[in-house]
């Protein structure tokens, strides 16, 4: 079973990313969460092939969550999906070894991300 993790406090954003992935990879399992703690709880041992994580979320921000995910799953490809398209944030994401995906989401951006994840 191939699992992809989607974390965004906006349901709209989760649904958008989820529907694009479902159309590109219909056999994948999509695990979605509204925040970092919920995501870590829901994973519960499942190893995702990729994670798409919003930056600007209440509580744990996307970079903090990504750092935790990298500790748990060192090879995991993570995309920081964010409306905050500033270079400063892009650099922080890249320093963590994450890809930077500017909102709004499109199927091309997701396709490119999955290709980068080797999927």
């Amino acid at each position: 079973m191939t699992t992809v993790l989607i974390v965004d406090d906006s349901r709209l954003a989760r649904d958008m990313v989820g529907s694009v992935i479902a159309s590109l990879r219909p056999d994948w399992t999509i695990l979605s969460a509204a925040g970092g703690d919920e995501a870590l709880g829901k994973l519960d041992g499942t190893v995702p092939v990729a994670a798409i994580v919003d930056y600007n979320m209440p509580g744990m921000d996307g970079l903090t969550l990504s750092a935790k995910l990298k500790e748990l799953y060192p090879g995991l490809t993570i995309g920081i999906l964010t409306a905050n398209v500033q270079d400063a944030l892009r650099k922080k994401a890249e320093a963590l070894g994450c890809r930077f995906i500017p909102k709004p989401i499109t199927s091309d951006k997701i396709r490119e991300f999955l290709a980068a994840a080797g999927q």
Binding site: S10, A13, T82, A83, N84, V85, Q86, D87, K103, P104
Partner: peptide
Amino acid sequence: ELFNIGMGQSAAALG
């Protein structure tokens, strides 16, 4: 979420 995206672009321009 729409305002979040809109402000993200603006913040980048301001930054």
